Every structure is written in structure tokens, then in C-alpha cells.
Amino acid sequence: MNDAELADRVATVRAFNRLYTGVIGVLDEGPADAEYSLPEARVLFELTQRDPLAVTDLRKRLDLDAGYASRLLARLESRGLITRERSDEDARRQLVRPTDAGRDAFALLNRRSTEQIGGLLRRFPDEDQRRLLTAMRTIGDVVGDRPRDPALVLRPPRPGDLGWVVQRHGALYAREYGFDTRFEGLVARIVADFAVHDDARQAFWIAELDGERAGSIGCARGADTDVAKLRLLLLEPSARGRGVGKRLVTECVEFARACGYRAVELSTVSILDAARALYRAAGFELVEETAFDGWGPELTEEIWRLEF
């Protein structure tokens, strides 16, 4: 990334920040007599979720320095919203609890926030709401703390999934390898075959990580009806290095074995090093190579095979 590209990206982030803080400002206005600041509301939220909570833990969760936290808690205590006490197990630790009045205050704030955000969402049609929420989840995934072990699910395609497979193949392979629209057209034809043929000896899987589509793979009947074909292995960049590709390949191979095929074949190209490593690790062997230039860059087409 050069300096000009970095400057453009910085400008985009700053423009988003201005837009988003403007939206948050509208949501935070509330009624004219709103009596709680944002830090006070955050403290009440944390305390109603974890009762009691040590002051040191509260400071870490909200990134507060000791002096500011002490003044903030003193204000809430003077209004009868919290109580502070020493821990029975360690007198050096101070515990904070919400009072009944504090719980009531948070319930009011929570209801008001729900109504305000609901009003914002209702300004947009359902499709735009889904796009907005997906974008928010993406930002959270990138800049937030990722879960150590995100839930991986392999499932059959649902309406819209096969179109996503075509679109993501086209976009990712164009960006990463320079493939042109002929490759996307090939993917569309393969996907169409899966969509129209109801065959108990073929299957297609969508991989999800924490509910988001992360990859795909298919198992189809080959020209030799005793040989299965592994098709359309795809991994989103965010899913790479998490074992998703290995799981997809294993699922396809085990399905082919259970269906009575005597082998699985696949076609790939030589520049797809990560995919080729997955195939090699699963026991596939390279059996044929042919020069190929059908998608833009000069390529070598490879046929890999796994015998049962």
C-alpha cells in the first residue's frame, strides 16, 4: 500500500467516524431532562450484568483511570443508585452493587435506547437493515477481540447461497489472482449443475463461522460414474488459517467414500498454493498438468486424485 492509497483509506475512515458520531449524537440526545451521562449509563449497564463487580474490574472494562472512576462512583452512590463495600475475601478489593433504584434507572435507560435505535432501524427497508447489521458485525470482527474458537458449521445451501458462491469466487479470484469474468462464468455453470440435478450421490456445503458464510465446497458425480469430483472449494480471507478448508475437504472426501465412489478427482491451477496444500494434506496426488490460459493470466491446470 503506497502513501496515496493510505491517505484515501484514512480519509474514508475519518468520514465514517464523522457520520457515525453524528448518528450516535442524535441517539444520545434523549429527552431534554435526561439525567445520566454516557459513562454513568455504562457503569449501570456493567453492574446490572455482573453483580457484584470489583472496582478494579469495572475500571478495566470501561478503561477508566482511578481518579475519574472514584468521582463517577461517588456521584452514583450519592444518588442512591449503587453501594460500595469491602470484599469479605480480600479487604483491599472494593465491590460495587446496583441498588433497586439503580436497576430501575438502568431499565429506563435501556428501554429508551431500544426505542431510539428501533426508530433508526425502522427508517430503512428490511434489506438495508440486514446490510447495515452485517457491516457492523464485520467492523466488530476486524477491530474487536475475535473469539478464540468461533463456531464452525457446515450446512446445505439455502436460497441465495449459490448466488453468493458465484459472486465470491468471481470477486476473490479477480482480486487475488487476476482471473477475468470467464472464470466467474465457469463457476456459474458448475453451480447451476448443482442446483438443477437432484442426485443422492452429490452434495454441496456452505461453511459458517459464528453464523457468517465463510466458504463452500461441492461433491459431484464425475464423467466416470465411479469417480467423484471435488468442486468449488472457497475460503473467505477471514476464515483462512482456522481449519475451515481442511474441514470442508474432509467432509467432501468422507461423503464420496460413503457414497461408494472409488476415487475423488479435482481440477485446480498451479498458482493456488494454499488450496494445493490442503489437497496434498488430505492425500490427493497430482496426476496431470496442462498449460492453460483461459482466465487471463497464464496458468497450469492440474488434476489431482485420491484413490480409496
Score class of each variant (00 low, 15 high):
L95M: 11
A200T: 14
G294S: 08
D161Y: 03
R131Q: 10
L76E: 09
L162D: 09
R112Y: 00
R123M: 08
D126K: 13
A4Q: 02
P39A: 12
T290N: 04
I271N: 10
L272K: 07
A277V: 12
G222N: 11
R84T: 12
L132A: 15
F194P: 04
N2D: 10
L62G: 14
G170D: 13
E288P: 07
L53S: 15
R123C: 12
A105R: 03
E35K: 12
E89Q: 07
L38I: 13
S238M: 05
A174W: 06
A32F: 00
L62I: 15
T290A: 07
R182Q: 13
L133P: 10
V23R: 03
T138Q: 06
A207H: 10
A74M: 09
L95G: 06
R146N: 06
C219Q: 06
Q167P: 11
L286M: 14
D224Y: 01
E46H: 03
I24Y: 05
A195P: 12
G222D: 10
A15E: 13
S216A: 12
H197W: 01
G30S: 07
C219Y: 00
A192F: 07
R231H: 03
S267V: 08
L278N: 04
A228K: 03
G211T: 14
V287Y: 08
E89D: 11
E301W: 02
R257I: 15
V23K: 02
L121V: 06
C219P: 01
V43Q: 01
L272Q: 09
R61M: 06
R61F: 04
D33I: 11
T138K: 06
L132M: 14
F124S: 13
L132G: 10
P156M: 08
P125S: 02
E184M: 15
A32V: 11
L108H: 06
P156K: 08
A282Q: 11
T48W: 01
V269G: 00
T114Q: 00
V287N: 13
T12S: 11
P159Y: 09
E29T: 14
A203N: 06
S37E: 11
V264F: 01
A174D: 14
R75E: 13
G25D: 05
A281M: 10
P237V: 06
R123H: 04
L154D: 10
L235A: 04
E77Y: 01
L6F: 12
P98D: 01
R182Y: 08
E29F: 03
A54S: 12
F16Y: 04
R168D: 04
L95W: 08
D273G: 11
P98E: 05
R168G: 05
P39F: 06
D65A: 09
Y177V: 11
V166G: 11
P159A: 14
A135F: 05
D88I: 12
V43G: 02
E46S: 09
L266Y: 01
A220M: 08
S87C: 14
A239T: 01
V43W: 00
L286D: 10
L186W: 01
R146V: 05
F106S: 09
F308M: 05
W295S: 15
L162Y: 03
L95A: 08
L186N: 01
L172K: 04
